[in-house]
Design a protein around this nucleic acid. Structure first.
Lengths: 128, 128
DNA sequence: CAGTATCCCGTCAGATACTG
DNA sequence: CAGTATCTGACGGGATACTG
């Protein structure tokens, strides 16, 4: 999935924007990151995830797990026991992604307050 | 906007996931990054953006600009001339964000092929 | 030029109930 | 335990037409 028709030349900056979108298309979903984090410390079971991740529905857990597995970010192991036991674990690729997010979380922490203030200011300005 | 009720203790990992979501809530939109990139090299006008960003609609351009301005990532200047001239430029905070995305784009480039292959494999496996 | 105003549709996500 | 099935509403985003 490309960002623009390949025959259209675009600037290096927009190419970069396109690359960022690739990432967002994988882990931009509401629950993807939480799941990856939980599965980055070792195998976790379905119900464990359901308990650890506040507010997720069974449906969205399943869907997001499937997508992450499809993209090669999660590995799924089925133990043919009774009752069934299924474990999910982050792949090396996903662990690298996790590392790459550090810069981003640092940014968010540094500017959390400034963003909140900007919002308040904007909303005050644009009322009435 | 918090990720979970504040009275619920959660692990450090989930706190990090929450922080990542903060960023995604700002720039997770389909066009946010493209706009920020365009406005990071100096002031750009509305119509310039419309031309440079392949496929964006006038409506989404306006909406995304407003949101970015509200979050303090973009600064908007209106020149009271005829015809009107409005310029947008990325704030220092947005430039820092742009820097923080480098790690992420590197990750995407390194694993682009692996992800595509994983998808193909998964889809082949789950057909029929 | 730099927007608004409408209408419309597809996808994301929640709620609930059922099952191998 | 680990899902699937179905229904539903909210929201993001596209197309088009109009305006100070």
């Amino acid at each position: 999935m490309t960002c623009a028709p390949q025959n259209v030349p675009f600037t290096e900056g927009q190419a970069r924007a396109c690359t960022v979108r690739e990432v967002l298309d994988r882990v931009g979903g509401k629950w993807s990151i939480s799941i990856l984090v939980s599965a980055s410390h070792g195998p976790v079971r379905f119900t464990e995830l359901e308990r650890h991740i506040e507010g997720i529905s069974r449906r969205m857990l399943t869907l997001t797990l499937r997508n992450l597995e499809r993209d090669g970010l999660l590995h799924r192991t089925v133990h043919p026991t009774v009752p069934p036991k299924v474990e999910y674990v982050a792949t090396p690729m996903a662990l690298e992604l996790y590392e790459s997010l550090v810069a981003l979380t640092n940014w968010a922490e540094r500017h959390r307050r400034a963003i909140a203030e900007a919002r308040t200011r904007y909303d005050a300005q644009h009322t009435g």
